[in-house]
Design a protein around this nucleic acid. Structure first.
Lengths: 257, 257
DNA sequence: CGGTCCGTTCGGCGCGCAGCGAAACGTTGC
DNA sequence: GCAACGTTTCGCTGCGCGCCGAACGGACCG
């Protein structure tokens, strides 16, 4: 009965898997090696555990070079974890040493032709959370309110859409940020935002290759775009955040004949 | 780390234990045999599982005759279960066939010298939830507001307290109701309530032995006493509900030196 | 005071699964 | 190119533990 409570509990019932899930609760992505090191098991053992979690749709992986980043696939697991932790109120996990990339590169940089780094993920978080995007099966699409917000600050949304159509490039998509381990925005729209940022003087070339310096004007714009409440009437905003496919352990009630 | 998430998850990770906990989520108590039957395992197997749950303080048992009733010991487990059930919003479990005791006896009856049956547990629930009692280590004690409520309807609280002192009988205590499988009120105070109920005509003798018929006047009084909001300012009312000992898996953080 | 019923403890069986090392594979970088 | 590295797959080992049947101990009923 139910969406098999025991099956879900089993995911957390092993100490190694529990550590993995706890580490991923921050929302950041980690490599298999990091997780193996953190949990104190052999890489092969960790690989097996990740396969289990992957099989039931609890995590998703992003291949990137010779690394393979792993992250939570379903935010509801955070609720489960918090309930299992009982008294412990969502401790801020920071045991894992995050690489101290050069500060210049961490704050803001270009990634191919779009924006990356802290400001990029903060902006993307704010836009996602405020319902600026919806998920058509193949990438992201702007909602009306999201389009208005970007146009208002000077991003040429329509040019990006036209370019996406002619070059068959994705209009907008998530892209894993290698310093922040969280998604920023890529695709034709991401490129348009970086173009706007250069044209309007939000950013200037930084001291090292590909690094970007955020100007005071840019801080204001990025702050505005990162603000969740700046979106729609904020009612069912969170509901329009892109959804990944339903995990297999959420047994669909009312099976279609 | 944590109050060992994996250890708590293990409790739910077995299908048999998950069924047990799901059955107990209603708050009612069940016998080991019932649970074994419900889960489809041998009594000996169920006994082992109950021992596990007992060892970590997840459940508590009440010996009564040759039955041994089992019930949840920590309400926080309900939160865990609900989170694990994910989408499923607290289904109203009613798979287990509750014995159809004679209706006369189920509604209201006397249990030794106090009141039992549906009206008794409803009244007790309401009084507990509205903060009428607090738990001194050995039984229950009335709070000021609780004493006022009972005196207001005509229960001789002070006589009960005097009798408890002279006879060394418990003033008030929980007593497991065998038809409702939930606590009602016993002790000197419980006896005083039954006395008041007879004296004021809230109940009359029923058709079968020990059964009681609730009069219209009695319905009004019991409804009033069952009403949670009729208690104190309802602020931290729930906090004064008697607490059982902390379960062993809730590792106390900040260990004293 | 036996017969019955409920529940526990004990011994034993067998599966599930977490763990490791060795080897193979693809990627990156010199 | 070749070497170094991260990751996966494979084969294997061992323990944990869920399950049962049989036997024992109280509690109720006649």
């Amino acid at each position: 009965m139910d969406p098999d409570v025991a099956a879900i509990a089993k995911l957390f019932a092993d100490h190694t898997r529990a550590t993995v899930l706890a580490t991923l609760m921050s929302g950041r992505a980690h490599t298999a090696g990091e997780l193996a090191n953190e949990a104190g098991v052999a890489p092969s053992t960790m690989s097996a555990h990740l396969n289990q979690l992957l099989a039931v749709g609890a995590i998703e992986t992003v291949a990137q070079g010779r690394h393979r980043y792993v992250r939570l696939a379903d935010p509801r697991l955070a609720d489960v974890f918090e309930a299992l932790a009982l008294a412990a109120p969502a401790k801020p996990v920071r045991s894992l040493r995050t690489f101290t990339h050069g500060e210049h590169l961490r704050r803001a940089r270009s990634c191919y032709d779009h924006l990356a780094g802290q400001v990029a993920v903060e902006m993307a978080d704010g836009l996602f959370a405020s319902g600026a995007f919806c998920d058509d099966g193949d990438g992201l699409n702007l909602t009306d309110s999201g389009g208005d917000r970007l146009r208002a600050v000077g991003v040429d949304v329509d040019a990006a859409r036209a370019r996406a159509a002619t070059t068959r490039r994705r209009f907008a998509t998530r892209c894993l940020d290698w310093s922040e381990r969280t998604d920023h925005l890529a695709g034709a729209l991401g490129a348009a935002i970086l173009t706007a940022a250069r044209d309007h003087g939000w950013v200037a070339s930084g001291p090292v290759h590909r690094s970007l310096a955020v100007t005071p004007a840019g801080e204001a714009v990025f702050d505005h775009l990162s603000d969740v409440r700046a979106g729609t009437a904020a009612g069912d905003a969170a509901r329009t955040v892109p959804q990944v496919g339903r995990p297999s352990w959420a047994a669909q009630d009312g099976q279609a004949p």
